[in-house]
């Protein structure tokens, strides 16, 4: 097994920092991405220069210089974060719809499907990723597979609730109009379940955005990687910026899905007369 990227050699304990970057030291925080700093790379420069006295050197929480000097690292982390979230939730949705439909159609299937997904949801994220380690090795697939399993619970539960809430009258009217079981499902039941399903999708997405950070343990955590390396080097600006970006992504994704839901279900916006 290869050593995960970005993990320290010690027992994961940031309270025993390496002597290079003692807590509260005025030293410029060293990270794996140090070469990203413009004008950095003291190795190529023979002169030994004093560290610049900017907010990075003072290790402040809020630091504009961090944003300008490490913009592309942040951007890469955000892109990875978005990719991991989007792929996981999309796969989760693809699996959840047939499961929910099956649980709706065959009553005996509902118990096991809901039971298993609930058990999966109870397993803490760190343990989930670790349990998948022998299957996928140290790869992004671990994070995706873990997040798929988590989103399954939320999605199956909500889609099933949506399908069950379709009024019997509506179903019978469709049958009376000559709808077969497939057309009934695709044209009547699933569209009517969209509001409940979207509610589940929003919760699943917001949870996934927050859980991706735990993927830092295997080196695929998007912004979590920056939080993890920032913790090991006491780099406050990096930890705060990455954390705030996580919340921003979660809120933005939630609003985006809310917008999509409104577009998909124009009937729910009908003006009450």
């Amino acid at each position: 097994m290869a050593r995960p990227r970005g993990s320290g050699t010690h027992d994961g304990d940031p309270r025993t920092p390496s002597p290079l970057c003692a807590p509260g030291s005025q030293r410029f925080p060293r990270t794996a991405h140090q070469d990203a700093r413009p004008g950095g790379g003291a190795g190529s420069n023979e002169r030994v220069t004093a560290p610049p006295d900017d907010c990075l050197a003072r290790n402040e929480w809020i630091c504009g210089a961090y944003l300008t000097s490490r913009g592309h690292i942040l951007w890469d982390a955000v892109v990875q974060h978005l990719q991991l979230t989007a792929v996981s939730v999309a796969i989760g949705l693809l699996i959840a719809v047939p499961l929910a439909v099956a649980a709706r159609r065959w009553r005996w299937a509902a118990g096991p499907v809901l039971g298993i997904t609930t058990i999966l949801y109870t397993i803490p994220s760190l343990a989930m990723f670790s349990l998948l380690l022998p299957v996928y090795g140290l790869s992004a697939s671990i994070v995706v597979a873990g997040l798929v399993l988590y989103s399954l619970t939320l999605l199956v539960r909500n889609i099933l609730a949506g399908l069950r809430a379709v009024p019997e009258d509506t179903r019978q009217a469709a049958r009376g109009m000559g709808y077969g079981p497939v057309r009934l499902l695709l044209a009547v039941e699933l569209p009517l379940a969209v509001p409940a399903a979207m509610a589940g999708l929003r919760i699943a997405t917001v949870s996934a955005v927050s859980l991706v950070t735990v993927g830092a343990i295997v080196g695929y955590g998007g912004l979590g990687n920056l939080i993890y390396s920032g913790m090991n080097t006491y780099f406050k600006a990096q930890v705060l910026t990455a954390s705030v970006l996580c919340v921003v992504i979660a809120v933005a994704a939630d609003l985006l899905l809310l917008g999509i839901q409104r577009l998909l279900t124009p009937w729910t916006r009908a003006v009450p007369s």
Binding site: P4, S7, D11, L126, A127, S130, P134, I217
Partner: peptide, 29 residues
């Protein structure tokens, strides 16, 4: 218990990581 998992990662010991994960999962359940 999570410490068993993180220590397992740092020791690059898959059995320890999985053992820690099983302990955590059982505890949660």
């Amino acid at each position: 218990l999570g410490r068993i998992i993180t220590a397992g990662f740092n020791l690059a010991s898959t059995p320890q990581v999985v053992a820690g994960a099983i302990l955590v999962a059982v505890f949660a359940l």
